[in-house]
Nucleic acid binder design. Structure first.
Length: 309
RNA sequence: GGGCGGAUGGCAGAGCGGUCAAAUGCUCCGCACUGUAAAUGCGGCGCCUUCGGGCUACGGGGGUUCGAAUCCCUCUCCUCCCA
């Protein structure tokens, strides 16, 4: 008699597709807890702009509580702090274990698909922490020089890397300096090895036009809720414009506006375009994942989950 | 009514006799993704193509020229200025 692998529900989809709402309903219905997979919602103070659900952080549960549902991995880092996929993977796996231990269903929900995949594919992340000193040294080199250097260090990795992408090249070199070469992504074949978890991957299907309209609507609401003030106060409390610029989208564009680099209307327009492009990039990523079941109606999603459990 | 300046690809906007199917930016379409991933990067964007090219194009019409988005005439529309 084989014991069944614990079941995990994953809710994916582009920004503004309504993931959070679906995840909350599923959690309520099936006794679940949500693990947020959102690289911006991990930061305290990034609330309106990152689209956090309304709720409060509860000491008692050690998690964020919204509509009586526990949300993990929200507000777990200070702005400017380094919280990346490696932290996420470790934290999420620990929390998954805890949720299962409580006899509840883990529901992973978020827009950071790179992070989600690290759980569902059990990606091996090289144990090499960012080396800011090395990075800043490498940044002064041209992309060609970086590529040459990587080719010297690890010809294998150089074969498939995007030779024009400095961020990727620098990271690859960083790994080489620490480990000698970049380890292969995944070695173990899933079919033969015992699967640790059983995933149901749900994608929220949304037509492009409908999604764009939702994005616009949500953006207006966020401005009404005081998103500009949010960024202003973050900055006043010591969060640098440089960091906010890197965080992207609303934080990037509002920072530019606050620095008078762009007018209000222009900023709103360009931000809207950027969000749309972001949604498209998310879809490009999601399209490759053949395990995703794409549904648009909540009732269908609920049915699918019921079946799965 | 008179005068000035304009009219360029989906938009903005360069070009001002050949090297222009036309810079640049945006939109739009597509793609990648090994510790920044809301980040970062790449490709396409008049039509057809056997990938050599071919065709139609810079408001309409006419002209000058070997050659015109670029010069001239004229028509239409627009900005501004004078009445």
């Amino acid at each position: 008699m084989q014991t069944q692998a614990p079941k995990i529900i994953v809710v994916m989809g582009p920004t503004a597709s309504g993931k959070s709402g679906v995840a909350i309903k599923l959690a309520q219905k099936f006794n679940g807890e949500i693990i947020s997979a959102d690289s911006r919602q991990v930061y305290k103070g990034l609330d309106i702009g990152s689209g956090k659900v309304d709720g409060v952080w509860s000491m008692e549960h050690g998690a964020f509580v919204s509509e009586n549902v526990l949300h993990h991995l929200i507000d777990v880092a200070e702005p400017m702090e380094d919280y990346n996929i490696s932290h996420f993977k470790k934290d999420a796996e620990k929390i998954i274990g805890e949720i299962i231990g409580r006899g509840k269903i883990p529901i992973i929900c978020g827009g950071t698909n790179f992070w989600i995949d690290s759980i569902t594919n059990n990606t091996i992340i090289p144990e090499v922490a960012p080396d800011e000193l090395l990075r800043s040294m490498l940044r002064s080199k041209t992309t060609e020089e970086l590529f040459e250097e990587l080719r010297r260090l690890d010809p294998e990795r150089a074969k498939n890397i995007d030779a024009k992408n400095p961020v990727r090249l620098i990271r690859a070199i960083e790994i080489c300096k620490a480990l000698g070469k970049v380890p292969k992504l995944s070695v173990v074949s899933c079919k033969l090895s015992v699967k640790k978890y059983d995933f149901l991957q749900i994608g929220i299907k949304t037509e492009r036009e409908e999604l764009n309209a939702k994005i616009q609507k949500r953006l207006n609401e966020r401005f009404d809720e005081g998103m500009i003030q949010e960024v202003e106060s973050l900055q006043k409390n010591g969060v640098t414009y440089e960091w906010l610029e890197r965080i992207g989208l609303e934080y990037r564009w509002i920072s530019r506006f606050l620095q008078d680099k762009v007018g209000l209307d222009e900023m709103k327009k360009l931000l809207y375009f950027d969000i749309i492009h972001f949604a498209k990039r998310q879809m490009t990523w999601l399209k490759r994942n053949k395990d995703i079941i794409w549904l648009d109606k909540y009732e269908d999603i609920e049915k699918e989950v019921k079946n799965f459990l």
